[in-house]
Write a protein that binds this DNA or RNA. Structure first.
Lengths: 203, 203
DNA sequence: GGAGTACGTTAACGGTGTTAAGTAAGTGAG
DNA sequence: CTCACTTACTTAACACCGTTAACGTACTCC
């Protein structure tokens, strides 16, 4: 009986090897330069083997990104657990989000800046384990905490959270893609964005 | 002598035909589905002919986008010429930018959401005819007008403009890519973003 | 009329994601 | 022990892609 389990373990192992190889290529050479063949080369299997473990390239990369975004969720969880002023906590979370995006530009781009697959289903957005949804739920909670503490007026939480998301996604994605734009300082513009958004919601 | 001119005219004509075909495919089938071969098929020339008129695919698409963004500049010029409250004018401009992006999602994506070409030169950003720079100069002017009229405090104009750009780019790009996200209403979140940004800068 | 050039072609290279068919090894039943 | 079956993987191929080199043809100019 132990045989089947050993096989299953081995299978899982190769699956993880594929994910690791894909992730490394992803980080090192960027989104455009990851190909199934290069991943296969790296793990010294034939390209078609990957298709035994993943439906297609999109599914593989989606999994890679999901894993990476798990780390963002961990960071945000830690920040949200901290006591103190909810507004400062919210701002810290927003900056953590931005910095995470800048530290993982390819993953961020793949997740939030690439067109959705053709047959993408609307219901996918209601899966709570999608990276976007999970990160977004932190935002909802952060805003709610601020309102409860009387630090923000009783605004529409969904709308406010989406507004903030737009703002921090904006600066994150612009800094990723237009790295060479004559910014007034990366840190400066990041903090300006966060402060402006929060101040704007207070008004 | 008129022969050379006729030839030049014909040459220009084919160049424009290529641009038109590329633009149409671009709009209809999206960025990922425009290939040199499909453009060539459409105008009934061989794919290599395109390389007589354009260095490579990037240059062709850049030109297509530049042409399209010219229309945004026109719109913004009209808005900026209008009299009245500079804050309202600024907001109108921001909303025009967002709507332009949503009406030309593929052009917008190619211009602001795709990684810059490998050998991209920093000096390119200082060319005043780059679409980004031109649109951005309107933002600078809009913010300056507000400060002059005493409607905004004497903040750092560059920083404030970049903050606003981040915000409106954020909502534009999110609405393009995550069309199916359960937004609290497209119009609502657009106006919320614009209002929040401007209100935030007032504070 | 002959040389040169401008414009467009065909054929090819090396790459991509993906699939169909084949192979070899291991498993389990009779 | 043998034979059928399953699993894991490979090879070969398809239909694309951007791009380049080599070629032809038709027209301009001397």
């Amino acid at each position: 009986m132990g045989v089947k389990e050993r096989r299953a373990r081995q299978k899982k192992f190769l699956r993880q090897e594929i994910l690791d190889a894909a992730s490394e290529l992803f980080v090192r050479d960027g989104f455009e330069n990851v190909s199934m063949r290069r991943i296969a080369d790296k793990i010294e299997y034939s390209p078609t083997t990957i298709y035994i473990y993943f439906k297609d390239k999109a599914e593989l990369l989606e999994q890679v990104c999901k894993d990476t975004f798990g780390r963002l969720v961990q960071r945000l969880t830690k920040i949200m657990e901290q006591p103190g002023d909810p507004v400062e906590r919210l701002k810290k979370g927003l900056i953590a989000y931005i910095e995470f995006g800048l530290q993982n530009p390819h993953h961020y781009r793949a997740t939030f800046m690439m067109p959705l697959p053709e047959g993408f289903d609307k219901t996918k957005y209601h899966e709570t384990d999608s990276p976007g949804k999970q990160a977004f739920s932190f935002l909802i909670r952060g805003v709610t905490d601020c309102i409860k503490a009387g630090k923000l007026p009783a605004i529409d939480v969904e709308l406010a959270s989406q507004t903030i998301w737009a703002g921090i996604h904006g600066i994150t994605s612009l800094l990723i893609v237009h790295e060479l734009f004559p910014w007034a300082g990366r840190e400066k513009v990041i903090h300006s964005t966060v402060d402006t958004l929060v101040a704007g919601l207070k008004a």
